[in-house]
């Protein structure tokens, strides 16, 4: 398990390659908005991507049309590493999810823990987790990758503290048990591409009902 609070650079290679599912893209976009180090990592991945694209073959274009000059040239910047730093992720829901935190429907998932599924397919799930101060989450592994972005509060996992804007990068080699700090509730959003594997019998029994 990585104890870094940033995703592995391999994620930015995949992001730059356009090979991620929507939930992973969203999480990384939100982290990129607050992390200059990772914006730099993405730019490097784009530089290599450009080598692949412009070092490849050519395919003749069927058409050419001159853009209408009336279209203007001042669109919003869409390149992550060209954007200014964002210091507040509280707009995450409005901006990325299209709904406010209060509009989500939470399920109880254990003592002090609530869960909301934002998207759910076999290889791309997005989960919101809301945990009361001091909550100890069930110990679990993954059948795949998991990226967890902290939106509010903080939690410990192993020796690392994950705060607002941090990402925990877990995969099938990771066995972890997040513990929320005592000073505030913790809200996270997680992207996963495979089912979780819980260590506890109770969680394994409840897992099909929670759909995680």
């Amino acid at each position: 398990m990585s104890t870094s609070n940033h995703p592995d650079q391999a994620w930015f290679v995949s992001y730059a390659a356009g090979s991620l599912t929507p939930s992973f893209n969203l999480l990384l976009q939100a982290h990129l908005a607050v992390c200059s180090q990772c914006r730099c990592g993405l730019k490097k991945a784009d530089e290599i991507g450009a080598q692949f694209m412009f070092g490849g073959e050519e395919a003749p274009m069927d058409n050419f049309e001159m853009p209408n000059p009336q279209l203007g040239v001042n669109q919003n910047e869409s390149i992550e590493w060209g954007k200014d730093e964002v210091t507040d992720l509280s707009q995450f829901f409005d901006h990325y999810i299209g709904t406010h935190l209060d509009g989500l429907q939470w399920m109880n998932a254990g003592k002090g823990l609530q869960l909301c599924k934002l998207s759910d397919s076999d290889d791309d799930k997005m989960l919101m987790l809301r945990a009361a101060p001091g909550t100890v989450l069930p110990k679990h592994r993954h059948n795949g990758s998991e990226l967890t972005l902290v939106l509010k509060g903080a939690y410990f996992c192993e020796d690392a503290l994950f705060k607002v804007g941090d990402i925990e990068d877990a995969d099938d080699t990771t066995l972890h048990q997040p513990v929320v700090t005592n000073d505030s509730e913790c809200i996270c959003v997680a992207a996963v591409d495979g089912p979780l594997r819980f260590s506890g019998l109770l969680q394994r029994v409840a897992q099909p009902f929670l759909g995680i």
Binding site: A16, K43, D46, E47, G49, A50, M53, F54, P67, L71, G72, V73, N74, Q75, E77, S78, I79, E80, W81, G82
Partner: peptide
């Protein structure tokens, strides 16, 4: 065409910038 005014050669090469688009 529409974003070209945002291109800054001090930040990235044209190929990297277009690749990102």
């Amino acid at each position: 065409w529409r974003k070209a005014d945002l291109f800054d050669p001090n930040k990235a090469s044209a190929r990297t910038w277009v690749y990102a688009i």
